[in-house]
Design a protein around this nucleic acid. Sequence first.
DNA 1: CTGTTAGCGCTTTCAG
DNA 2: CTGAAAGCGCTAACAG
Lengths: 320, 320
Amino acid sequence: MGTVSRVLNQHPAVSEATRAAVQEAIASLNYTPNPSARRLSSGRTLTIAIIVPFFTRPSFVERLRGVVAVLNQSEYQLVIYNVETPQQRDLYLHDLPRRSRFDGLLILSLTPTDAEAERLQQSGVPVVLIDAFHPLLHGVGVDDVAGGALATGHLIALGHRDIGYISDLIDCPYRFIASRARLQGYCQALAAAQIPCDPRYQQEATQHGVREAREAARLLLDRPQPPTAVFAASDTQAFGVLQAARARGLDVPAQLSVIGYDDIEMAEFWHLTTVHQPLSESGAEGARLLLAAMAAPFDSPRQIRQPLTLIQRQTTAPRV
Amino acid sequence: MGTVSRVLNQHPAVSEATRAAVQEAIASLNYTPNPSARRLSSGRTLTIAIIVPFFTRPSFVERLRGVVAVLNQSEYQLVIYNVETPQQRDLYLHDLPRRSRFDGLLILSLTPTDAEAERLQQSGVPVVLIDAFHPLLHGVGVDDVAGGALATGHLIALGHRDIGYISDLIDCPYRFIASRARLQGYCQALAAAQIPCDPRYQQEATQHGVREAREAARLLLDRPQPPTAVFAASDTQAFGVLQAARARGLDVPAQLSVIGYDDIEMAEFWHLTTVHQPLSESGAEGARLLLAAMAAPFDSPRQIRQPLTLIQRQTTAPRV
DNA sequence: CTGTTAGCGCTTTCAG
DNA sequence: CTGAAAGCGCTAACAG
């Protein structure tokens, strides 16, 4: 029994002969080790949890895909906790490391508060944030301020000066921070071009979604001097802007330029100019980082920044 | 210890007094039972597996969402096996009930062969198919033949006679069967209206995706007598048809009617007429069915048929 | 109704 | 290098 276990766990102290013999026996008996027993005696749960908000949203599910791809190759199981209310968010972030047990925890797109981060850190289970950062924790993601500036800079370079910004709530109960960071980049780019940053060109949608973004865009287009270009903080929201433009009979890009963010699959099909960020790769990288941290803890939080790329398609054009 | 266990597992044979005392002790000690130990001694894994093909596709992820919602409320963990190659499909369907251990298995949109179904049945773990059926297994889903007829009937009722059909491969290595069933319904509806079912109006795309559907639609529109209406076997493919029409300068719905299938979220935003089927609800129902079957096996396979609804939006119109 | 006890099937010492 | 043996922390069967 002890020897069998050593073979199964690739322990080096086994002679080649017995190793082979055991492996043959295993094969012929069609033996499968019982994972529950393994977990109990080894003290490892062989389970990794991931907290995901709205995991059906294209960008989140794409990241999740990267996580699944990496973990399916490992010995770890992935358990998903889907967050669809602020209460769930707080509950999971607060209780998860305690209530059940995991060998590692991934958190997607949710930025912990300092208190939450501290608690997470002290829980002892390795944590990696994906698409989010906190000084106390490992993290993988892009620089959204730079991304906001990249998108806005593209519009400015095309000659636009009246540039709208559409996003989710800047202060939302889930503590998504992307909208704020991209707004910051937007303002920076405007400032660099000496264009005043007019809050009347900034519309927050109360909810994430095409419909809400469409309404927000409508408000922008209703202004006395409507923007000639709009930067939407996500591709989904950019679709809403496209719809609002179409409803108004505005030609995109001749009369209105639209740029999105994320480069989800649909963006290509609708020829949307957007800022590409590695989605599934961020999940894969986060999972790898977690696996590494579980194998041998790092001394200090590791922060991985992934690159952003401007993808020029057919929804942006020079200002006429 | 025994008593504590009884309290935790809501065993009836405990007096109110001791129950309360134990619960207080649990609370004050901040005690959490170790799930691994529970699993080992009880012989239950408290885990349910789900095999999902391409779980990032909108309709699949929406179904998955229903599963997650139900199982997160139960004591079971969900482990996802994502299928992205035919080999993975065969491997998982063949090995999963054996290799690791689950208390239950969900299979999404993949129809097992008779041999696979038999093996699954004999493995002893309860299995529920979602969006698929097999006489030996429990299943939840819609009647895709009826759905195909519903979509096609709508176009016929609008006066169309030259009606195209665009779908995935009818014979695909994943054994998705929806495309074939919907084609069957399409043919039935045509026959009922005494319209010949011309195979030149049927285009299979080699892959699922907007791009491939766009190419397929292009072929259809290139025909000497192009169809005046197209039924796409999924909303995603319908988007491809819309693009092909737009690229050709065809007005939808004035010159070309397009109907999809599934009613994914995006369908509403692009005003797509489509056949609505319960997506997240199919997952939820499947999970509930599995939980029930795990609690008390049914004598014979339970098949739940969910309703289909025609959703008329703005991509279909009477033939001019 | 409650305390005691024997496993669940592994991993991991510890001798040999 | 390889057997034997002691748990891991629960559940469930058994006495009391």
